[in-house]
């Protein structure tokens, strides 16, 4: 006992971090592991930084030999040029933005409502077929969407939804990942909360809207970011043919097709595209982590 006291005393004048350290950690190990982590963090962030700096480079700097990593005279010309280039195209740039925003919004909103309704009953009630259904959803997480792409085309064709927004919006409702995370998160919701509301005379729909939904906010946000991520990055080239219904990512590919002189503009578009999902993620990070804590696959 006295020995332990001594150790504590010896640590007292040192920094707070050292005091908090776990007793079974070696300093050398810490040093090298965190050095490694720092190096990896630098590698991970490098392409993103490089992307931003290329978007800020004037044209002559993009073709400098030897090329520089960071822009010497950063300018916003590329972003301005982008609007000029897109202004000349048959479909205006704002239309692409509108398409992407509309698809993302409609798909995400529908997914949020439809999937949380289903997840709610699966998580909180025991009814025949419920467990089996959830198992099937779990299996669908195990194969990527590419497998079902061809029959999906045939089905959308049968509905007459090819070349309409519905071809992207409606399938997004069923996105299994969001459903899975929502259901796992709702498991943690106390049943007594629901029962209390029922005793007070609330119908199922009221319980869902007033009790369940406000309590699973973190799961919503997670659902939203996943759905936004998949819809926002969707080039929409499989099911949509009309130029005026294509998305921002598709436009990016088109600008790139304009040749090597457009390099700066392509970078500018990619900044425009990636800024939205990253911002949403940064703003809702803690809630997403809260949701992911219940994401585990139990047997």
């Amino acid at each position: 006992m006295s020995k332990k006291m001594k150790v504590e005393k010896a640590y007292k004048p040192k920094a707070k971090i050292l005091k908090k350290r776990k007793p079974n950690r070696s300093l050398v190990g810490d040093f090298f592991l965190y050095l490694f982590l720092l190096g990896m963090a630098f590698l991970m962030v490098f392409p993103l930084v490089f992307s931003v700096s290329s978007a800020l480079k004037p044209l002559d700097e993009l073709f400098l030999f030897p090329p520089k990593i960071l822009a010497q005279n950063p300018t916003l010309d590329n972003f301005a040029d982008l609007f000029v280039t897109m202004g000349k195209s048959w479909v205006t740039f704002s239309r692409y933005i509108f398409n992407t925003v509309w698809l993302t919004f409609a798909g995400t909103a529908g997914h949020l409502i439809v999937a949380s309704m289903g997840a709610f009953v699966l998580a909180k009630y025991d009814f025949p077929g419920g467990k089996t259904f959830f198992k099937v959803v779990t299996v669908s997480l195990m194969f990527s969407g590419y497998i079902t792409q061809i029959p999906n085309y045939l089905i959308l064709n049968a509905f007459g939804w090819i070349d309409t927004y519905w071809s992207l919006v409606i399938p997004a409702f069923a996105f299994p990942m969001g459903f899975f995370l929502m259901k796992q998160f709702m498991e943690g919701l106390p049943m007594s909360l629901i029962e209390a509301a029922k005793i007070d005379g609330a119908r199922e729909w009221r319980v869902f809207i007033d009790i369940v939904m406000p309590n699973v906010k973190p799961a919503w946000l997670t659902m939203i970011i996943y759905s936004v991520q998949s819809l926002w990055n969707n080039p929409a080239n499989m099911f949509i043919y009309s130029e005026e219904k294509k998305t921002l990512v598709y436009a990016l590919q088109q600008v790139g097709g304009g040749g090597i002189a457009r390099t700066g503009q392509v970078q500018a578009v990619s900044i425009v595209i990636m800024v939205v999902p990253i911002t949403i993620f940064i703003m809702s990070e803690s809630q997403i982590l809260e949701t992911m804590a219940s994401s585990g696959l139990k047997d």
Binding site: P47, L48, N233, G256
Partner: peptide, 12 residues
């Protein structure tokens, strides 16, 4: 961030 930005950032 790379896995979110990924598809758009491949150009880099």
């Amino acid at each position: 961030a790379p896995s979110i930005a990924g598809a758009a950032c491949l150009v880099v």
